[in-house]
């Protein structure tokens, strides 16, 4: 069945037209990447990497799925690779931030330290007009997280992955995973509160 596709360089044999990719798909891919990464520069890089990787695999694309689905699948892999790289760098950060987190609670009895105890945000958090503003603040707070934490949090919530799958992908233990989820939320919450004061 591959007979037809042996002439790799001849574009009429291919099921895709790369010259039109940027026009047709770049913005959609970028939006998807941003929603997973919340970082414009990284998102741009990965969109570019996606197109270049797709070019090099062009002869293997058989048109069974749509071009768009095919490109999105490549992008998803690039994002997973990015997370994995972050994770392998990130285990040190867990240890470093140990002290930051202990600060939230009394070492002896686990009570909130007065300075860090959550206070009411003092605004109508269900007001849709505020949601956009809060979302912007949250993005700023997310950028301050260690990359590994962000990766874990994002994989859990954006892609709704099971914790076992995330642990496997990022080579974390189950207890590491929950410690990261907990610390991430403590830090995000404290960060939001600081902005809303």
């Amino acid at each position: 069945m591959n007979e037809e596709k042996n002439g790799l360089g001849i574009s009429k044999q291919l099921h895709s037209d790369p010259v039109s990719w940027v026009e047709k798909y770049a913005d959609d891919l970028y939006r998807f990447a941003i929603s997973r990464l919340r970082d414009e520069e990284v998102a741009k890089d990965l969109v570019q990497d996606t197109f270049l990787a797709a070019l090099s695999q062009l002869s293997r694309f058989e048109g069974n799925s749509s071009e768009k689905t095919w490109l999105a699948a490549i992008l998803k892999n690039k994002i997973s690779d990015f997370y994995r790289k972050q994770a392998s760098r990130g285990l040190n950060e867990i240890r470093q931030s140990e002290t930051v987190q202990q600060d939230f609670f009394d070492l002896e009895n686990g009570h909130w330290n007065a300075l860090h105890a959550p206070g009411v945000f003092g605004l109508e958090i269900n007001n849709p007009l505020l949601t956009k503003e809060l979302s912007g603040i949250l993005t700023a707070c997310l950028k301050k997280l260690p990359p590994l934490w962000y990766s874990v949090f994002s994989m859990k919530h954006m892609d709704d992955l099971q914790s076992e799958k995330i642990c496997m992908e990022l080579k974390l233990t189950d207890s590491n995973f929950w410690v990261i989820m907990h610390r991430t939320k403590l830090n995000l919450r404290a960060c939001l509160q600081k902005y809303l004061k």
Binding site: P18, V19, W21, V22, E23, A26, D27, Y30, R31, F32, I34, S35, R38, K44, V47, Q48, F51, L52, L55, I125, T131, K132, L134, S135, L138, T139, L142, F153, H157, M158, K185, L188, R189, L192
Partner: peptide, 28 residues
């Protein structure tokens, strides 16, 4: 609330800038 804000993040107004797209097209 943080979970809701995170998953409800809106990207529909986001776009790549034209210069970046033009560069990408040339590269391809």
């Amino acid at each position: 609330l943080i979970n809701r804000l995170f998953t409800g993040f809106q990207t529909k107004d986001l776009k790549l800038d034209e210069d970046f797209k033009a560069g990408l097209k040339r590269r391809i």
